[in-house]
Amino acid sequence: MEATLASLKPAHPAPLALSGPAVAYGGGKFLAVWSDERTGGIFGTRIRQDGTVLDPNIRINIGDGARGNSRPAIAFNGTSFFVVWNSLDGVDGVRVKPDGTVVGPVFHVIRTDESFSPVGVACSPDICLVTFTIAGDAETVIFFGRVTKNGVVITDSDRTLSPFPNFARDAAVTWNNQRKEFLVVWSDERGAGAGHEDIYGNRVKEDGTILDDDGFPISTAPGAQRTPDVTWTGRRYHVVWSDNRDGDPDIFGARVYGNGAVEDPDGIPISTASGDQTEPRIAHHNAKSLVVWDDTRTGAHRIFGARFGEDGRVWDPTGFAISQGDEPQEFLPDVAYGGGQFFTAYAGADAFEPFEPRFILGTRVNHQAEVTDIPALLLTREP
């Protein structure tokens, strides 16, 4: 018999997470994963469509520990979840069945002590593309690796997506099921120096063929464009990022056609509220995407969101509050769509500190921008 959250939640749970969550939908359930201070370093839990939290935390990494504060990434290939993270000696991953069973062994996308977060993953039914950043002596470069649906790593002869010497970081990736290719986006200095990063993209076929050489520009606005995310809508890509062209960081987006043509080269303002808007994440269903981000307009860190239409319209130009202050600081969101609703997972803590333990919280959001779970669901709890 499945227990409810209320029956499993301890009176005073201990914060265990070290980094923000990633979330995906598959097999009728959401799976949220995060970096954790317990042995293994990567844990997760499943959430039913009705908001029931099913697991007292699954140990996802059944191998060695993850690198401290390494935020994992997750995707669903139609059969299994693929979870990847930055480990002590490279980038590792594992498959998880929709029933919560972790399928070993852990696969090693790359063995190196020069990789660092964030990692990204997107899956076709047969291939998952994993993105990560490698640090050299005078550059950071976006790399990718491919993994079969059975968890077997494919050796690629050319794995770099960004040019070097150069500083590129913060890659994200999505799968285009119509063109049978992936789009990877990232933040890229291109010689302009820190504080002047732009957003670039590159398309990759399932067989590893790189379609856009060193990448194509998506946003080259003044100032810094950072921490992008991307989703395929069925008609085009939606790309979002944090953008400080007007001073404080705001959330901007652009639509990109499947052939790489950028429909909105100047960007579309999604949130230009007071304070800082950073770390956007995006998920799509029907004619709208839900964009979520870390927002300090109230002074504390909170999670806000806005709906971004297929036609470029922003349905919630002032944004709406997704987190409600269950924790003094709430930050590092992710979002996925499934079962008729969006699910947003995020970190919560007493203070905005990068290396302190924290809780992972979650809430459902419907197409009318209504938040279902107040207070938020508590996804981490003592074993």
Results as ranks from 00 to 15, higher is better:
residue 182 F to H: 04
residue 183 L to K: 05
residue 169 R to P: 00
residue 152 V to C: 00
residue 162 S to V: 02
residue 197 E to W: 03
residue 137 D to W: 12
residue 194 A to W: 01
residue 196 H to G: 08
residue 136 G to C: 01
residue 161 L to T: 06
residue 167 F to M: 03
residue 177 N to Y: 14
residue 201 G to Q: 06
residue 181 E to R: 15
residue 174 T to C: 13
residue 173 V to L: 04
residue 177 N to G: 15
residue 195 G to H: 01
residue 165 P to M: 03
residue 143 F to D: 00
residue 183 L to Y: 04
residue 171 A to Y: 00
residue 150 N to I: 02
residue 191 G to K: 09
residue 201 G to M: 08
residue 140 T to Y: 04
residue 198 D to G: 15
residue 187 S to E: 04
residue 168 A to F: 04
residue 153 V to C: 06
residue 135 A to F: 09
residue 201 G to A: 11
residue 198 D to Q: 14
residue 142 I to L: 02
residue 165 P to C: 11
residue 162 S to C: 04
residue 148 T to R: 09
residue 183 L to R: 08
residue 175 W to D: 10
residue 187 S to D: 06
residue 152 V to Q: 09
residue 195 G to E: 07
residue 188 D to N: 03
residue 141 V to Q: 11
residue 163 P to A: 12
residue 202 N to E: 09
residue 198 D to F: 07
residue 150 N to Q: 12
residue 147 V to G: 09
residue 166 N to K: 05
residue 161 L to D: 06
residue 144 F to C: 01
residue 200 Y to G: 03
residue 136 G to W: 09
residue 163 P to Y: 11
residue 165 P to V: 07
residue 200 Y to H: 10
residue 148 T to W: 02
residue 172 A to S: 14
residue 152 V to F: 01
residue 198 D to E: 13
residue 193 G to C: 09
residue 155 T to P: 08
residue 159 R to A: 12
residue 159 R to H: 10
residue 169 R to W: 11
residue 141 V to E: 03
residue 173 V to T: 12
residue 140 T to Q: 09
residue 153 V to F: 02
residue 168 A to D: 09
residue 192 A to F: 12
residue 175 W to M: 07
residue 171 A to D: 01
residue 188 D to F: 04
residue 183 L to S: 03
residue 193 G to F: 02
residue 202 N to Q: 13
residue 165 P to R: 05
residue 199 I to Q: 03
residue 140 T to K: 04
residue 143 F to P: 00
residue 166 N to R: 04
residue 137 D to Q: 14
residue 190 R to G: 07
residue 189 E to W: 10
residue 160 T to H: 06
residue 164 F to Q: 03
residue 139 E to F: 15
residue 161 L to N: 07
residue 183 L to Q: 11
residue 199 I to C: 07
residue 200 Y to R: 02
residue 167 F to W: 13
residue 178 Q to N: 15
residue 173 V to N: 02
residue 156 D to A: 05
residue 162 S to A: 08
residue 186 W to S: 03
residue 152 V to R: 08
residue 187 S to G: 13
residue 153 V to P: 03
residue 170 D to H: 02
residue 201 G to N: 05
residue 138 A to Q: 14
residue 160 T to V: 10
residue 176 N to I: 08
residue 195 G to M: 08
residue 161 L to Y: 10
residue 161 L to K: 02
residue 192 A to G: 11
residue 190 R to P: 06
residue 174 T to K: 07
residue 187 S to Q: 06
residue 158 D to H: 15
residue 199 I to L: 08
residue 148 T to I: 09
residue 185 V to A: 03
residue 194 A to E: 11
residue 177 N to H: 15
residue 156 D to P: 00
residue 145 G to R: 03
residue 152 V to H: 04
residue 136 G to T: 13
residue 196 H to V: 08
residue 177 N to K: 14
residue 201 G to I: 03
residue 202 N to V: 04
residue 152 V to G: 01
residue 200 Y to L: 12
residue 134 I to F: 05
residue 182 F to T: 06
residue 191 G to Y: 11
residue 200 Y to S: 07
residue 202 N to M: 10
residue 137 D to P: 12
residue 180 K to S: 14
residue 148 T to S: 15
residue 193 G to D: 07
residue 194 A to D: 13
residue 145 G to C: 02
residue 146 R to A: 13
residue 202 N to H: 10
residue 188 D to L: 06
residue 137 D to F: 11
residue 180 K to M: 13
residue 185 V to G: 00
residue 138 A to F: 14
residue 152 V to Y: 00
residue 154 I to G: 00
residue 194 A to F: 09
residue 157 S to P: 06
residue 167 F to D: 08
residue 176 N to G: 11
